[in-house]
Design a protein around this nucleic acid. Sequence first.
DNA 1: TACACAATGTGATTTATATCACAAAATATT
DNA 2: AATATTTTGTGATATAAATCACATTGTGTA
Lengths: 225, 225
Amino acid sequence: MQNDCRNCPFHTKDIGTLSENGFDQLSANHLVLKFKKGDTIIKQGMYSTNVVFLRTGLAKIHLAGPYHEQIVRLVKAPTYLGLPTTVGDKINQYSVTAVSDMEVCFIDLNIFRNLLRENEQFSYEIILDLCHNELESFHRCAQRTQKLIRGNMADALLELANNIFMSDKFLLPISQAELANLVDTSRESISRILTEFDKDGIIKINGKEIEILNKKSLTLISLKG
Amino acid sequence: MQNDCRNCPFHTKDIGTLSENGFDQLSANHLVLKFKKGDTIIKQGMYSTNVVFLRTGLAKIHLAGPYHEQIVRLVKAPTYLGLPTTVGDKINQYSVTAVSDMEVCFIDLNIFRNLLRENEQFSYEIILDLCHNELESFHRCAQRTQKLIRGNMADALLELANNIFMSDKFLLPISQAELANLVDTSRESISRILTEFDKDGIIKINGKEIEILNKKSLTLISLKG
DNA sequence: TACACAATGTGATTTATATCACAAAATATT
DNA sequence: AATATTTTGTGATATAAATCACATTGTGTA
């Protein structure tokens, strides 16, 4: 047994609903692996029979668009990485790449299905989580397509500060080129807007470090473009 | 008992996995309602404790964006309409409006939860469905933002022909203004592109009727812009 | 049938942002 | 440390598509 999942400090709350037997199954049938920044965790187009769970670290979910790779979102631990891609198809429909060093659990899909089958509350929590994701997708869709780039850029910075790093000062975890594929714009526009925000005193840039000085302004830009 | 759900011809396959008891619960605790084209089935911001299932007809899922209503997708029966919006929050996070006359089942949320709790296979089918939706959102996100409007327009027409009406000849179910909010463009661009497609012999327009004459061209436009 | 209102077609103009081009910094590699 | 490679900053230019403006057609209704 690799680890006893009962004692794992990297839970999402759904795990807490497992039965004793469920915990035993999970403990006996998962693999904890370390990845380095830049490593591929899940590769679009590859066959996979594991549900992937991110214990620690930061990852990007991305997939091939018609012209370039599209980053769908950045996600931080603890979270599932490969639920839809594994549970639905066996062929991964998207890629997941490590944005920081990280630890990941691989859980055999059959075991995971068993857990779902034998643990109603667990199953329900997963449903809640998936519903939540779908709602988020809807909102993102409406926001991204209607806003100007400045607005989407403001969103991205606020998301990083509020939901990823929980701090108004952070190191940009991805390059401007990647940021462009997340915000749906060009690399050049990202650069220009960052300098502009800096000049306007909304943020302070110091190499890769970004500090949000005026969150109100940024929020306003997010709302009004 | 309104209907015996065992005999309902408008199932999705998940329903087939219910136990006898599950069928009895569902049969006793749902309401079948008729709606007319244009009626609101689910209203963003309203409180709701029902899971909504579309038996017959066509609906649009939409929500408020920063500048205008965003249509996220058109859906046709049979399908759930209000899973994420009800199961997650009690406040609806999006609206659903009838695009054709339709019949809808309202299922009490507590009953639905019971069904999930007591029917593992049913629960698993729902999870599969939600995973599938998430994957679709990812792909849509990559496609919509990277393609030119002609490409997105081609997609919309192909979607209507292949997945909604199952025919290359159909009546546009929504106005050009609504189409614009689905394809992420302006009403005028929709009009221009439709005429252009018609002039190029790719489609034939006859009032609200559209016939796809050259699906290959349309597919090519969808891929290459 | 007539009237009002909504939906559509189409030209002219404006605009946000992509693209191109290249210099400057930063980072990695030998 | 020196060189190569990637990343970033910024001006000039091009362009897809929005917006504006208005005519036309379609649809519902009094």
